[in-house]
């Protein structure tokens, strides 16, 4: 259980003014749920994720994971980045095993575990390749396997499929839904795609910029159907899906939000 209580992050801009990247945000992420934060650029969704990961200190408030307050990065929160952060000098299997290496697991044991995870993400045949011989989508799958290897309490995913082409992206969404169904990990997922948010989230929170806030929260749950069938078509044409999509779109594009873009 992850509890975010009144979390605020304030930067000072180059002209000395205060930028409220995150303004008194409260949010719970229950075990076995995927919370997707969606919003326009600058709405604080990445700030929220970075604060939970421990990369960024909170100005106010607190973040508590299973009763322990978070104040630095740690192995109990697995992070999948938008940018490729694999180590080019290590093979794919050793990249996946990196967290286990840090934890002091023996070479044979950590490679065995890494191979299991590569099998889970469909890359068993690429274990011994260097990461730069893989495509962008494959690298993100390695990143997901690497984050899962240490069995973290929560997965934090920062627009992980944002740089992928739309077909690869759909395949990755299927993969994530089925990995979630199999592992039951709690996940915080950041995206700027409303359809991706609704497809993957058990809960979707909509954020708006300046100051970064949660403006609405929806229980979606299409991901359960998606994880079961692996077919996105019926979900996309589901009337409730369309209704929610339009509602969220209106929230993100409402005039007030547009006005603050100037």
């Amino acid at each position: 259980m992850l509890q975010i209580r009144d979390a605020s992050v304030t930067f000072s801009a180059s002209d000395g003014s205060a930028v409220h990247a995150l303004d008194h945000v409260s949010l719970d992420i229950a075990p076995d749920s995927i919370v997707v934060a969606v919003g326009a650029s600058g709405c604080g969704k990445s700030t929220l994720l970075n604060a939970i990961a421990g990369f960024l200190p909170l100005t106010e408030g607190s973040i508590i994971l299973d009763g322990e307050e978070i104040d630095r990065p740690g192995g109990d929160r697995g992070v999948v980045f938008q940018k490729d952060t694999l180590l080019p000098w290590a093979s794919v299997v050793d990249n996946v095993a990196l967290g286990l290496k840090f934890a002091g697991v023996s070479k044979a044991a950590r490679r065995e575990r890494a191979r299991e995870l590569l099998d889970l993400v469909g890359l068993a045949d690429f274990a011994d390749k260097p990461p730069y011989e893989l495509s962008g989508g494959m690298r993100q799958r390695v990143g997901l396997a690497r984050a899962l290897a240490t069995d973290p309490k929560i997965l934090l995913m920062d627009e992980p499929f944002g740089a992928l082409d739309s077909l690869t992206r759909e395949t990755m969404q299927q993969l994530l839904a089925s990995v979630w169904a199999r592992t039951g990990k709690q996940i915080l997922f950041i995206t700027h795609s409303i359809e991706e948010a609704l497809t993957l989230g058990t809960t979707v929170v909509v954020m708006s910029p300046r100051p970064g806030r949660i403006v609405a929260r929806f229980e979606a749950g299409f991901v359960r159907e998606f994880a079961g069938t692996g077919d996105i078509g019926p979900i996309l044409s589901d009337p409730r899906f369309i209704e929610l999509r339009e509602e969220i779109r209106a929230l993100i594009h409402r005039p007030a939000a547009k006005g603050t873009l100037q």
């Binding site: 993400v121 011989e133 395949t171 169904a181 199999r182 359960r224 079961g228």
Partner: peptide
Amino acid sequence: MTLAADPRAVFTHVQPAPTTRRL
């Protein structure tokens, strides 16, 4: 909760594009 079909099945058609592209 519904369990997923084997997620690996989804990926069998994916080609290792960059390795062939690198040559």
